[in-house]
Structures are given as structure tokens and as C-alpha cells.
């Protein structure tokens, strides 16, 4: 049986992740309330507004059960807002914003600036032969990555200052950018290899 991957669908670009999963032969399940978590083998936390998603996780009473599954080792892939939610520390977040503490990084929201500074770029990724088309939208940036974190790609934040934009710790993968907005499935495949 192909793996069943939950896609958090409270707000944001969840549909593109589900499409990518199906193209790779996995099954996708939208997650909005706790019972949607039953029997999933992994989860994707998509891009969107992290403050909104964080509030909706609380109001739908999904935060605690999802947090428990993640703590038990549920494989997770977070893009943009999803990276923020999986991180150990959120900088420039709201004071009541919670995260799942599944990867030892400190993430600054909107590190690259406002929308007019949003950009796309071909980046080199450790373990991939050809460059990956990375789309950064009001993207978060990793300020500190702990020793257990593998940095798979970096981008220049300002002159001479490269920061991590794709990181992995055990079976948790996070990106500042949006692979789901391209037709390139290699990062989704990299994630599914861990499931």
C-alpha cells in the first residue's frame, strides 16, 4: 500500500502539495481537524500565513494531537510557513505563536523582506545533480542551525552572508521556498524516501 500523507489544509497552498504527492504515487489526505490525523504515515505543513495557521491549529484542537504524533517521530516536510511551525524557535513571530520543536533551527519570519523582494532562483541542493528552481515568497530565513541539522542548500541574504534555506534533521525536512509551486518533484521524492 502506498503511504498516506496528511497535508495540513487549514489555510495556504495545500492543494499543490497533494498534487505532487499523487504524481509520486503516494496518497494525500487533507487535515483540518484531529480525526483527519488518523492513520497518516507522514505530514506536510504547507506555505500560508504562519500566524493564521497557528491560530487555526489551536481553535480546531489539532495542535496537541499533531504535536504528539510529531514527537513520536511522524516524518514531516514543512515549506515556508511550515518550516516556521516545525522549528525550535520563531523570531519576529507573535508572542502567542507556538511551534512543534521538531528541528533545531531559529527561523526569522519575512527574513528576505516584503513581497517586492520575493524572488526565484536556481539553487544547488546537496544530493541533487541539477539545480532546483526555488521560489521564495516573503520567505523565512534560518538564523541559527544546531549541530544535528544538515544544511542542504543556502542562499545569499545580503552580500557575503549565505543562510540555510533547505534543512533536514532525521526525518524532518524544511524549506524556506516553495517546491510545490514548480513542477519539480525531487524534494517531495526526497521526503517520501524517508517515509
Amino acid at each position: 500500500m502506498s503511504p498516506l500523507v496528511g497535508v495540513l489544509a487549514l489555510q495556504g497552498a495545500s492543494g499543490e502539495h497533494a498534487d505532487a504527492l499523487r504524481k509520486l504515487g503516494a496518497r494525500a489526505q487533507e487535515v483540518r481537524i484531529p480525526k483527519d490525523l488518523a492513520s497518516i504515515d507522514a505530514i506536510i505543513l504547507p506555505g500560508g500565513e504562519s500566524t493564521t495557521i497557528s491560530m487555526l491549529l489551536e481553535s480546531s484542537e489539532t495542535f496537541e494531537p499533531l504535536s504528539e504524533l510529531l514527537a513520536q517521530g511522524l516524518p514531516a516536510f514543512g515549506t515556508c510557513a511550515g518550516m516556521i511551525m516545525l522549528s525550535n524557535e520563531v523570531l519576529d513571530g507573535r508572542s502567542d505563536q507556538r511551534s512543534f520543536n521538531r528541528i533545531d533551527i531559529s527561523v526569522r519570519r519575512n527574513a528576505f523582506g516584503r513581497q517586492i523582494a520575493s524572488f526565484e532562483k536556481e539553487i544547488d541542493v546537496l544530493g541533487l545533480e541539477d539545480p532546483f528552481p526555488a521560489v521564495f515568497i516573503r520567505a523565512p530565513g534560518v538564523e541559527v542551525a544546531g549541530p544535528a541539522v544538515e544544511v542542504l542548500a543556502t542562499v545569499e541574504l545580503d552580500k557575503g552572508n549565505e543562510i540555510p534555506v533547505l534543512c533536514r534533521q532525521n526525518n524532518v525536512l524544511v524549506s524556506s521556498f516553495h517546491p510545490e509551486l514548480t513542477n519539480d518533484l525531487r524534494l517531495h521524492q526526497m521526503f517520501l524516501n524517508e517515509v
Binding site: 495556504g12 510557513a81 520575493s118
Partner: peptide, 11 residues
């Protein structure tokens, strides 16, 4: 990039 922000606002 322009359309992408609209995508992130969905829902």
C-alpha cells in the same frame, strides 16, 4: 512570485 503570494493567501 506574484501569483505565488496569492496562492499562499488561499483559504
Amino acid at each position: 512570485v506574484k501569483r505565488g503570494l496569492a496562492d499562499m493567501l488561499r483559504g
